[in-house]
């Protein structure tokens, strides 16, 4: 079972009170990677819909841009199958060029990657090909949208969102 399914369920049930008001004026654009392992290879298009439902709830429908092709027909990013550990970085980046171009074509400044291999690969592609988009986990955006993303939990956010909706902290007691 994937936690993406539960995120969607919890948003529908109102247990996770997310909203996209923070992005109404900012209009920061997001795209999402459908992980092969999750979508094409196991749970299929229904989980891709759950993923979009959550992403749209969090960043705003009008600020979400899909890649083409997508869902079960999406291109693999090149982070899977052990490619990140195979010691073939040039081939891996050449493979990932298609994904990089797909992301750049959306015009989004953030790519949400709900898979570790995708996250590592897509992050690396942005740096290598100088795409300047940011690569974030879905949990980061859900917590940001609820105003509960702590100061140490913002590693992958860009400067534009780094300080947004910062919750209150206090000094630790010794």
């Amino acid at each position: 079972m994937s936690i993406i399914q539960l995120y969607a369920q919890w948003v529908r049930e109102g247990k996770l009170k997310v909203n996209s008001d923070w992005n109404k004026d900012l209009k920061v654009k997001f795209t999402v990677q459908d992980p092969c392992q999750l979508v094409r290879k196991s749970l299929g298009d229904p989980v891709a819909e759950d993923l979009r439902y959550v992403v749209k709830a969090v960043v705003g429908e009008e600020n979400f841009v899909d890649m083409t092709p997508n869902r079960s027909n999406n291109y693999c990013c090149g982070g899977g199958g052990g490619f990140l550990q195979s010691g073939l970085p040039e081939a891996r980046r050449e493979y990932g060029k298609l994904k990089f171009e797909q992301i750049m074509a959306t015009g989004a400044t953030y790519a949400i990657t709900p898979c570790h291999n995708c996250h590592a690969q897509i992050h690396d592609l942005s740096e290598h090909f100088e795409g300047h988009y940011h690569t974030v986990h879905l949990w980061t955006m859900i917590c940001l949208a609820m105003g509960i993303l702590g100061p140490n939990e913002r590693t992958y956010l860009g400067e534009d969102l780094a300080e947004l909706l910062m919750p209150e902290t206090r000094e630790a007691e010794e």
Binding site: M1, W10, K15, H137, C143, G150, E153, T155
Partner: peptide
């Protein structure tokens, strides 16, 4: 639920686990 975790978090960036815990907490999982 038995939650798994990619080794990358506990080993290299443990703070990345926190957002997940907060979500599970709010959902009452």
């Amino acid at each position: 639920y038995f939650l798994n975790q990619n080794s990358r978090e506990p080993v290299t960036e443990p703070d990345e686990m926190v957002p997940l815990w907060k979500i599970l907490h709010l959902a009452g999982a």
